[in-house]
Design a protein around this nucleic acid. Structure first.
Ligand SMILES: [Zn+2]
Ligand SMILES: [Zn+2]
Ligand SMILES: [Zn+2]
Ligand SMILES: [Zn+2]
Lengths: 619, 619
DNA sequence: CGCAGTTCACCGGGTTCA
DNA sequence: TGAACCCGGTGAACTGCG
């Protein structure tokens, strides 16, 4: 820098200082703002090196009661017109930057001096922003945030810094738009084409060195038992300290740094797996203990979720080991992992994808593993669990992934042992049922079960001990013979003693059926046209709240109107499914054909002999 | 090695050979198996170097008709008790390893001699294959190919291997998806356009020679005027002056390299984001808050782009497409490598947001990858097959088994602790919320929060204190029990006092959620299928003015139509962003996937029980 | 009162068109 | 895509009759 370059009144550059124009001596009064030399740091080969008061840089930057942080003391900042001059030998790592600030009125004289270290690129190591040197220098062992300027002493032992900028992207899934610059995978990259269950995990995902890499990255290895894209715990921030024993450490069979480290893992990328880990070690993911069927879908793991959180006992989906990552269509029973969304309130009113099979229990083999060779051509597995979804007449929308039945196969309806007798039903193996249950003939072809105490069943009144009353229809009496006799009113009599009358009963409410399982029910004596005036106010067609007898049957207003309109229009419907729809309150609008058929089945007729029926009962 | 160390009868070490105990002379008979010196290669500073018969190593290893392959001739193997001795000067790359084997009866005398090359870590370069010891030994600083056998002496000081094998393998330009992890080149290093397997690796990126400062983009000089990840320059020279101070820099108080720098940006990397960036902006944040689905995609500049090319304001690619698209992520139609230049074939006719490749079928194994031949011309496949089977709308998670989408293409949404109560919500830790907030059940699965004063929510009326009303959906009541009770209307009562009614709520709008964090809300009495008929006429999906309940949720005409069309078409969408779009009136057209997801989330159903729900409330 | 018939707001489905 | 519109089914509420 030549003196001539500097016209600043109070420039601090050595020439200025030398000739007294700078702040070489005590200031008697506050200097005004100065225009400065704008020599660029490192741009020219500045050859002079001299020690200058440290506060030429520091104090001045520090002045005015608004201290700059070290972060602010960066070249980028200085270059914004604040630099007055700089001296550094070519390639030097130390040099001087003098920044010009108007001195504060009470500015003290320089008291400190020192060297402002510069990188050989002219940047201060205090400046921690983007720096590619790590990449360029092949510092794959870098544990710092991307774009971090490597300190000279940076080695493999340098501990990872915890503050990863990419953490700000926590809510973003995989190929998140703003991938950290140190990520070496292409965005949205997937596994190689012939990716199968046998495909070994991709060689160490370079991006894994990004240990703070949030959530799911596209190619999760098969051993990962975390939900894909699982969100980091809510309060997870860049400051979240490493969880001590990374759960993923148990994955020892994988040689290299396993591609999908849990997002909470704060260990070094290639941390050594514990020796005690064997191939027999269970996949050890750790869903929170509290996760259950009631756990809302997609909820974030509780804050308390740590590596010590014991894995929930057998996650059904875990048995699916032969599959590489979270297989797309997990069994709907599964309460774990990816995005399942079974509504809690499974009931007859539950929206479409509800329905857990009745027979499904903890003993039900969890999501049985598909054969390794399982393909789309794999023949159907005979008892598809989802088949118990009998309330869905048609091709049920979400059949299980293991279902190999034809897409629209008719769901067989399990026949439960229900023996009907007149008026009363004894429930013996259904502890939550009252011992005696009313049996109402809603029409001459349908019965309704309810508790013995209730004479009215309104939707608000859930019937027997909070449960909906059960409407049975279309069930054929004779099939009882194949069912064990469970005692009750007619205990010991056996099927032979059953009346020969045929009463159609269909068990429609699966969710309630198990309560009835083994129940003994008896009905008799009621003639084909008799019905109980004390029948609960339940629509015999759809199960909705009935308003009384309409067209010869206890129906709701809807079915009443529907039947009347159908009669009036002399309508002829065609079932869009298979003609065996079970009409419920919720689906009654979906198949007019079966609804009308049901109307007729339970005995509705246009020319109703209401008075006759009533007379028959009232005598 | 000292002579005294070697007690082997037929040891070949120089001292042994020297005093006749080794195979310095012709063998008259086959030597017996010998115990050997076990000096470790490279471990001690072996100082003697002597040429020894090559077959001291080779022949012996090769002996007995069961030749070891080159892979077997590795240190790891040799170290397994077979090495007899080795000589190498410290740091030498060449040395000797002598392995002791019993000579075969017909062993010929040494006929060949040679040097067995060693790396300076004592490894044979011939050995390149798998070994897990690196991981197990915590050698994260390894510079060798993954899975090789780590020599004992391998330390952090071992320089990275220079020859990147991956380069010889790659046929794909730039950031090819499967870059070998051992590649030590700069990420995203772009190979020349006609890059083939024969193309020699570009060792120093020509552009790198121009750069003086490291910067965030992996090795892009600041004066570079090309798009990031450009293929190397056209008229770009060192003389191209860097552009003057980026205006955005004036805003910035902290350096940051925002990962998603628009490709048209001509400023130096690491400049800050525009206007919204303030001093309060936490360091290293990435995307500007204002970046949304409306943000134009981060398209790449055309090939003809030169330093003089002014940044295009409207991305040319946008002119081809009818819908804005993912920003850093390119158009989902795109079949090119990331960061590609937009192909011309993108047209407005291309259906938006599809993803699956044509060859995608039920036979395609789950989680398969796009075919290699996947190009821009690959037509998108029509709606996900899985949807064609379903007759009922269903939430995504239970998609059809043959669906080849990733299990969870939508992001899990962190669930915040919100305790729902009827009608009112008290926000206690959300200072910007009014103390009392209305809670409207918009559907049976969604509620809308608003201020206590507003009974109507119009888009113009931003709701509570200028903020949009918050729509929550899909959240399950029961999880409240695991959440701290935050006071409010029911302060002190705790979860035990909560009604047993299950109300599904899911906090879907992340951007709004933080306002609700810790909020205490209470709701009661409303049954699972009830929803508030007095809910404000705002669309639960997008916030637009609602026209009533459609498909079981209060929605606008647009979302009604969209949902119906989606159901009818059995459409399957893929979010071009990250699957967590917040749907608003203005952007609802931009991401069908998230819009449909939101529809489902708030409880829209193809087969809804609209009137029943009405009845439940009106009764 | 019980029940058939009527009413009509509401909603699903479809169409048009800018 | 969505506003506007139409059409038809639906069912809660109502009317009227016995
Ligand atoms: Zn009915
Ligand atoms: Zn039907
Ligand atoms: Zn809407
Ligand atoms: Zn989206």
């Amino acid at each position: 820098m030549q003196r001539s370059e500097c016209a600043a009144r109070h420039c601090l550059c050595p020439p200025c200082a030398a000739d007294g124009r700078g702040l070489s001596g005590p200031e008697t009064e506050p200097p005004p703002a100065v225009s400065v030399c704008t020599a660029q740091v490192g741009a020219a080969g500045l050859s002079d090196v001299a020690e200058l008061p440290w506060d030429c840089v520091w104090t001045r930057l520090h002045g005015y009661g608004k201290p700059l942080t070290l972060d602010e003391l960066d070249v980028g900042n200085v270059l914004l017109g604040m630099i007055s001059w700089a001296l550094a030998p070519p390639g030097a790592r130390w040099g001087f930057i003098s920044c010009s600030f108007p001195l504060p009125p009470s500015a003290s004289q320089p008291q400190h001096s020192g060297l402002l270290p510069l990188t050989d690129t002219g940047r201060s190591p205090a400046h921690t922003t983007s720096c590619d040197s790590r990449i360029e220098q092949g510092h794959s062992n870098c544990r710092h945030a991307p774009n971090y300027t490597l300190p000279v002493t940076h080695t493999a032992d340098t501990p990872p810094i915890t503050h990863c900028p990419s953490l700000t992207l926590q809510t973003r899934p995989q190929s998140h738009p703003a991938r950290p610059s140190h990520c070496r995978h292409t965005p949205n990259h997937t596994l190689p084409v012939p990716h199968t269950a046998d495909t070994p995990p991709i060689t160490p995902c370079p991006s894994l060195t990004l240990q703070t890499h949030p959530q799911s990255h596209p190619a999760r290895p098969s051993h990962c038992r975390h939900a894909p894209n699982h969100t980091l715990p809510v309060p997870h921030t860049a400051d979240t300290p490493p969880i001590a024993p990374c759960p993923s450490l148990t994955l020892q069979t994988r040689p290299q740094s396993h591609p999908a480290r849990p997002s909470h893992c704060r260990h070094t990328p290639n941390h050594t797996l514990p020796v005690t880990h064997t191939a027999d070690t269970p996949p050890n993911h750790t869903l929170p203990v509290t996760r259950s069927a009631d756990t809302p879908p997609n909820r974030t793991l509780p804050v308390t979720h740590t590596a010590d959180t014991p894995p929930i006992t057998p996650c059904p989906s875990l048995t699916l080991q032969t599959r590489p990552q979270s297989h797309p269509a997990r069994h709907s029973l599964c309460r774990h992992a990816p995005n399942h969304t079974l509504p809690v309130t499974h009931s007859a009113d539950a929206p479409p994808n509800h329905t857990l099979p009745v027979t499904h229990s903890a003993d039900t083999p969890p999501n049985h593993t598909l054969p390794v060779t399982h393909t789309a051509d794999t023949p159907p597995i005979t008892p598809c669990l989802s088949l118990t979804l009998q309330t869905r007449p048609q091709s049920h929308p979400a059949h299980h992934s293991h279902c190999r039945q034809a897409p629209k196969h008719t769901l067989p309806i399990p026949v439960h042992p229900v023996v009907a007798g007149r008026g009363w039903a004894g429930a013996h193996s259904a502890p939550r049922c009252t011992p005696n249950m009313c049996l109402f003939l809603v029409s001459n072809q349908a019965v309704v079960f309810g508790c013995g105490e209730c004479t009215e069943f309104s939707p608000a009144d859930k019937g027997c001990e909070g449960r909906e009353p059960v409407v049975l229809s279309g069930w054929t009496w004779n099939s009882v013979s194949s069912v064990g006799w469970r005692g009750g009113l007619n205990q010991g009599q056996g099927p032979a003693a059953l009346p020969q009358t045929t009463v159609k009963l269909t068990l429609t409410q699966c969710s309630l059926l198990h309560l009835m399982d083994g129940m003994a029910v008896s009905t008799s004596a009621l003639g084909p046209d008799e019905f109980d005036r004390n029948a609960p106010r339940i629509c015999g067609v759809c199960g909705d709240k009935a308003t009384g007898f309409h067209f010869n049957a206890m129906t709701c207003e809807g079915c009443k109107g529907f039947f009347r309109r159908s009669m009036k229009r002399k309508a002829s419907f065609t079932c869009p499914f298979n003609g065996s729809c079970t009409i419920t309150k919720d689906n009654r609008r979906h198949c007019q054909a079966c609804r009308l058929k049901r109307c007729v089945d339970i005995g509705m007729m246009k020319e109703c002999k209401s008075t006759d029926a009533r007379a028959a009962l009232h005598h």
